[in-house]
């Protein structure tokens, strides 16, 4: 199953931005990429270059037994987007109930997209435990925990393995990304070293802080368009290659091998 979900025990670590940038990086490797926003903030659409006025989303029509592939919005970059969308309180509560109570809800809605060769689905989750996280945990996807190199993120690491969050089993399989590392900060460097020692091979990669990233969002462009020479692009591409290799169905696709050998 070519599913990757990004979660973070602490808010404000840049998870949604990272989700969008990894989608662009995976697309540049040749994958078809679809991003699913399960965060009520509904901000992934802005990172994907859509208008503020774009209110369509999966939550408002979740009660209908429809295939979500019909609701994918083609973004300017070519990445497919399933936004959270604008929803009433009742619609949000109904959506959360479906996620909690129907074990195969997401799998049925996403359908064959999850097994389509060469295609990768990225899911952006809200901060901390959520009904969306419970739903994706049940699927055989790749869990990625996003942290920042600071004391608070380090302190929240033990939460990841707790039952109400990823749980022991998914917690052991989870991979980690340290986001927004600022190499001129001694604390950032020390925290990054702490994570490297603590996580070992579970550390999927690190992304350095670059002012061009929020500027790209404000410009409604991807970082690859806005600052193609930025050093952070190397970080994103390294992580994207690792993710691609970990998904046999996506990586094993004949058309993918050219860029990964």
């Amino acid at each position: 199953m070519n599913l990757v979900y990004l979660t973070s025990p602490k808010g404000g670590v840049g998870r949604t931005t990272l989700t969008a940038n990894l989608a662009f990086a995976l697309q540049r490797l040749g994958h078809q990429v679809v991003v699913l926003d399960l965060d009520v903030q509904n901000s992934l659409r802005l990172h994907m270059g859509l208008s503020v006025a774009e209110h369509r989303g999966v939550v408002a029509q979740s009660q209908h037994n429809s295939d979500w592939r019909e609701h994918i919005i083609e973004t300017p970059s070519g990445v497919g987007l399933l936004p959270y969308g604008q929803a009433t309180k009742a619609q949000r509560e109904g959506f959360n109930t479906l996620l909690r109570q129907e074990p195969d809800f997401l799998e049925h809605r996403l359908g064959s997209l999850l097994h389509q060769p060469g295609c990768i689905t990225l899911v952006d989750l809200p901060t901390g435990p959520s009904s969306g996280l419970d739903a994706v945990k049940r699927m055989d996807g790749l869990g990625v925990v996003v942290l920042m190199a600071d004391g608070c993120s380090a302190a929240t690491m033990p939460l990841v393995g707790q039952d109400h969050y990823l749980g022991a089993e998914a917690g052991k399989r989870a991979l980690y990304i340290i986001n927004q590392i600022y190499i001129r900060s001694r604390l950032n460097r020390d925290c990054a070293e702490f994570f490297e020692n603590r996580l070992g091979s579970a550390l999927l990669g690190r992304v350095h802080r670059d002012e061009a990233i929020p500027e790209a969002t404000a410009s409604l462009q991807s970082i690859f368009e806005y600052a193609p020479t930025s050093a952070v692009i190397q970080d994103l591409e390294d992580i994207a290659r690792s993710i691609s290799r970990m998904l046999p169905d996506a990586y094993g696709h004949d058309s993918m091998k050219f860029s990964l050998r």
Partner: peptide
């Protein structure tokens, strides 16, 4: 594409990747 997403994301064919 927004009005006809089925065409862009048909299950069988992978399409609409930007020409890198």
């Amino acid at each position: 594409l927004a009005s006809n997403p089925k065409a862009a994301f048909a299950a069988a064919n992978v399409q609409s990747v930007r020409d890198i």
